[in-house]
Design a protein around this nucleic acid. Structure first.
Lengths: 343, 343
DNA sequence: GGATGGCACTCAGCGATCGAGAGTGCTAAG
DNA sequence: CTTAGCACTCTCGATCGCTGAGTGCCATCC
């Protein structure tokens, strides 16, 4: 009983089960795949595969179904990359290039993945923490309030209101000239810098300005450093939730746990960053520690302008998913997305 | 057979069916509600109600179920407003007041409605078209590109990139002084104005500036007017999708059509604005022309700072929903939201 | 030793049958 | 107009037996 053929059998089982959604038996296996041996032989192989934990049968006298371990082996050693078709590639390219701003890019990427995979798509906005600062704008909105607009080199724009402490003499210091000075100083200090370097650069600014505006400068500096550093500020969008309902029957526990997990954006975000790796990462079924996703698999890739990853995107579907196809789609969208991002 | 009692029977049927989720028969009706008559009498009433189209039976020898028309009658004439409990009110108030920015307010409002109603929540961002302009900011990001940041009086911030036409002599005109002038002029012209007044005000600005910067000014003016005017720029967020799965069995056609309808943000937006009315609007089942929502009901209220509505929010659930409760929740959140909005 | 054919065994799924129970509509009487 | 009584209908759940798919094992063959 060659190991090689046994793996071939596993591959056949996975592929068949993914397309038919039904437990696959030894007979159909020999019919649909040129394995060159009889059903009886296959049965022996299947028995071994079951012992090894790669497949299981839902009940006696049913065919076999891959286990999480089986899928894992499949993606690690058996799956061949299946490149997208030319029309698909073109669709991605044109659809993404039509986007008018970052929001648009992100939702379009989501739609694309949802469409290509027929599953749920997750797209994380470019992480503030991993972006550089392109520009900082200060806008007075009231006597003692300032709107601080932060523009990152990935095109993301965040705004925060900033309470301005009164000057030493109790008077506000928000005249246009002061603002212009602060604006210029901050931007000069931050130009092209990564987030990690901002605290230092900004402290220098705060120290350099006159004591009358140091309070304002400090407040702004703190706000910016906080904003860019807060994990809570990461954002993600979903697409293709309706696709879940289509594969509803696949989830033994029903859709609720999955939908609930998807609504927990913080947790989802944790999953994305945790999975973030070079290339495409795959989590299968119970490999996800998240309760709601034990019947689901997650395929994630990071993306970013140039070489540096700034965020992740991916696709979530039933463990019984088309791994090669999903991986290819996620990978392709991530790559094109990296290309169209400003940077 | 008094008309009055018949309506009372209808109310009883609706209320029972909403809580039990099961067709309700004449016997339980007399047991659970003090109608003061025998089951036989109720049966006569029910026969009439059925003729009139307010109730129906799924099959012979099952209880009755309200039809869309039945719910409609219930909502219009039978439902009593059920005020929220004090803890609920307090929860709304504190949860909304903890929001740090507009995004946060909107998602929190969504969560609240989802939580209170146990259904899906829809919250529209303050409409750009119905907002006033608070501030306009111009930020140079490249030789020939300008980032235009628009801040509305509802706290919404939108940004667009603007290609800057070269000056008459072919040189770019994006020095800081020019920008400062433009910024000042635009803001002076727009101060406190509604969108409808912007085109005129901005044309005046474009004409007032020197010919060398008229091109830039015109480009910016067009961009702003377009951005604020575009219907496509309206945004909405969803919350509580997972709640759908819980009432999954209620949807004969399954969740797919509903989820699909919810993903069509443009269509959903159309529904919201179409339903926008004074107070709370209700669409029941087939009253929604949208295919996916024929088994669902939509409860919508508009909200806005001061008297002017700037957008809508609502809740979507199965036709068999708790109308008084849903209406109360939507109404309450809309009111509190109006209060915390800047303006 | 691995591959194979044969064979007995197991068990989910399907359809048919049946009875109980819920609920109705009708009729006749109060 | 209301009500009690009654016959009738139909869903739902349980039971049962069958069929067919699929397996595991054993003896055999290369």
């Amino acid at each position: 009983m060659s190991e090689e053929r046994r793996l071939e059998v596993l591959r056949a089982i996975v592929e068949d089960y993914v397309t038919t959604r039904e437990p696959v038996g030894s007979r159909v296996l020999t019919e649909r795949h040129r394995l060159g041996v009889s059903p009886a032989t296959i049965r022996n192989d299947m028995a071994t595969l079951e012992e090894e934990g790669y497949i299981a049968q839902p009940h006696t006298s049913a065919g076999r179904v891959p286990t999480d371990a089986g899928y894992r082996l499949f993606v690690d050693r058996l799956a061949e990359v299946r490149p997208l078709t030319v029309p698909q590639k073109r669709a991605i390219e044109t659809f993404l290039s039509e986007a008018v701003d970052l929001d648009d890019v992100v939702v379009r990427a989501g739609r694309l993945i949802a469409q290509l995979t027929g599953q749920v798509a997750v797209v994380q906005y470019p992480s503030l923490r991993r972006s550089g600062l392109r520009h900082l704008e200060l806008v007075p909105v009231a006597e003692d309030r300032l709107l601080v607009v932060v523009i990152t080199d990935t095109g993301r724009v965040e705004q925060r209101f900033c309470e301005v402490p009164a000057g030493a003499d109790g008077a506000t210091v928000l005249d246009e000239a002061t603002l212009a000075e602060l604006r210029a100083r901050f931007n000069a200090a931050a130009a092209g810098k990564r987030l990690a370097e901002l605290p230092v650069a900004f402290t220098a600014v705060v120290e350099a300005v006159g004591p009358s505006v140091a309070g304002v400068a400090g407040a702004v500096a703190d706000l910016v450093v906080d904003t860019l550093g807060q994990e809570g500020e990461e954002r993600i969008v979903l697409a293709g939730t309706a696709n879940l309902a289509r594969s509803e029957s696949t989830f033994e526990q029903g859709l609720s746990p999955v939908l609930e997990a998807l609504e927990e954006q913080v947790v989802l975000l944790g999953l994305l960053t945790e999975m973030s790796t070079d290339g495409v990462g795959v989590r299968i079924g119970h490999e996800n520690r998240l309760d709601g996703l034990t019947e689901a698999s997650v395929v994630v890739s990071d993306y970013g302008s140039g070489g540096d990853p700034v965020a992740s995107l991916g696709s979530i579907g039933p463990t019984r998913m088309d791994y090669p196809g999903t991986i290819a789609s996620v990978h392709a969208v991530a790559r094109y997305l990296s290309r169209v991002l400003p940077g």
